[in-house]
C-alpha cells in the first residue's frame, strides 16, 4: 500500500516504530473492510446462510446460490467499495485544494450538479441508462466544479463565502431536481435513486466506475507530492505560482471525475466525502497527503459498506437507500467531530 518513502519524517521515535504507526491504521481499516465485504456478501433479502454464501462465492457450480452471489451480492459489494473510495478521496482533495474543512463533493454542490444532469437526461431520454449517464454526470459535476473553482481562486471569497456559495448551489440544484421530477411525474420511481442507493448494482455499473477509480487513485498516489504542495501554499489570488496553478487544475479535475462517476452509478450519496477525510486525519501517523489518500481509499469503503449493510438489515426485507444511512450516521458524527476539534 503505502511506500516507505512517503512516510512523514520520523519525529523522536526510531524510524521503525514510526513506520509501524503509519501502517497500523491502514492494516486495521483493511481488515475492517475485508470483514465488511464478507458480511455484505452474506447478508441479503433471501437470507443465505454464511456457509452457503461462501460456497456460492468460491464454488463455481452454477447453482442458484452461486448465481445470486455472482449476480447480486458481489457486484453490490464491489460497487459500494468503489463509490466509497471515490467519494472519500474526492472529499480529501477538495478539502486540501480549497483549504476548507467544509469542502466535499456534497457541500460544494458537485453531487447535486451531477444529479440534475442525470435526472434531466433520464426524463428526456429514458432509454439511455447505465454507462450513458456518466457523460451528463461529468458535465453537471464539471459545471458546478468550475463555478466553485472560479469563486475560490478568483479573489477574496472567504471560507464562509465559499461555503455560502456551495450551500446556495446545492439548494438551487436540488430544487431543479425536484422540479424536474414533479413535472415529469416520476417522483415515485426516483425516490430511491435520489437518496443515493446501490440497490441496482450490477457488473455493468462496476465497469462504469472502475476505470475512473483506478486512474484517479493512481494519479493521486503518483502526484501526491505535488498535490501536497496545495496544503502548504496559501490559496489566495496572486500568490499562485504557475506550477501550483497547474496542480490545482489537476486536483479539480480529479474531484469532478471521482464524484461524477460515483453519482452516475449510485446517486448522490452524502457525507462520505465530508467525514471520512476528517476521521482519517485523526488516526495516528503523519499527515502526508498520499498516506491520507490511501486511508481514504480504504476508510471510505468501510463506512459505505457498513452503511449499506445497516440499510439492508433495519427494515428487512425492504431496503433503505444507503444515502439515508450515511446521512443518519454522518450528520451526528460530523457534529461530534466539530465539537471535538474546537475543544483541542
Amino acid at each position: 500500500m503505502s511506500t516507505p518513502d512517503t512516510a512523514a519524517p520520523p519525529r523522536s521515535a526510531p524510524a521503525r516504530s514510526a513506520h509501524a504507526a503509519d501502517l497500523g491504521p491502514i492494516l486495521v481499516l483493511t481488515a475492517l473492510l475485508a470483514a465488511g465485504v464478507v458480511a455484505s456478501v452474506c447478508v441479503g433479502a433471501s437470507g443465505l446462510p454464511f456457509a452457503r454464501a461462501v460456497h456460492g462465492l468460491f464454488v463455481w457450480d452454477g447453482s442458484a446460490d452461486h448465481a445470486l452471489v455472482l449476480d447480486v451480492r458481489l457486484p453490490r459489494a464491489v460497487l459500494t467499495v468503489l463509490v466509497g473510495a471515490n467519494l472519500a478521496v474526492a472529499g480529501l482533495i477538495a478539502q486540501t485544494l480549497t483549504r476548507n474543512p467544509l469542502a466535499s463533493p456534497q457541500t460544494f454542490g458537485i453531487n447535486a450538479g451531477a444529479s440534475v444532469a442525470i435526472v434531466l437526461v433520464a426524463v428526456a431520454l429514458p432509454s439511455l441508462g447505465g454507462a450513458g449517464l456518466v457523460v451528463p454526470a461529468f458535465a453537471g459535476a464539471a459545471a458546478v466544479g468550475a463555478i466553485m473553482w472560479f469563486l475560490s481562486v478568483s479573489g477574496a471569497v472567504t471560507t464562509v463565502g465559499l461555503a455560502l456559495a456551495g450551500v446556495t448551489l446545492q439548494l438551487v440544484l436540488t430544487a431543479l431536481v425536484q422540479a424536474l421530477l414533479i413535472m415529469s411525474n416520476t417522483t415515485q420511481d426516483m425516490v430511491f435513486w435520489l437518496a443515493g442507493s446501490v440497490t441496482g448494482a450490477d457488473w455493468s455499473k462496476v465497469a462504469v466506475i472502475l476505470p475512473f477509480t483506478l486512474v484517479c487513485c493512481a494519479v493521486v498516489l503518483l502526484a501526491g507530492r505535488h498535490l501536497g504542495l496545495l496544503q502548504l501554499d496559501v490559496m489566495t489570488g496572486g500568490s499562485l505560482g504557475q506550477n501550483t496553478r497547474r496542480v490545482a487544475g489537476l486536483a479539480s479535475a480529479l474531484v469532478v471525475l471521482l464524484a461524477g462517476s460515483a453519482v452516475a452509478v449510485s446517486g448522490p450519496v452524502g457525507f462520505v466525502g465530508l467525514i471520512v477525510p476528517h476521521i482519517v486525519r485523526r488516526l495516528p501517523g503523519g499527515g502526508d497527503l498520499r498516506r491520507l489518500a490511501v486511508l481514504c481509499m480504504v476508510g471510505g469503503p468501510v463506512l459505505l459498506v457498513c452503511a449499506d449493510l445497516a440499510g439492508r438489515v433495519v427494515a428487512f426485507p425492504q431496503e433503505l437507500p444507503v444515502g439515508i444511512v450515511t446521512a443518519l450516521i454522518g450528520a451526528p458524527s460530523f457534529v461530534f467531530l466539530a465539537v471535538r476539534q474546537r475543544h483541542r
Binding site: 425516490v191 437518496a195 433503505l320 443518519l328
Partner: peptide, 21 residues
Amino acid sequence: VLVGAALAALAGAAIEYLLVR
C-alpha cells in the same frame, strides 16, 4: 453553519426515510 447544515441533512435523511417507507 456547518452544524446547522448537518442538522438539516439529518432532518432531510429522516424525511427521506419516511418517504421511502
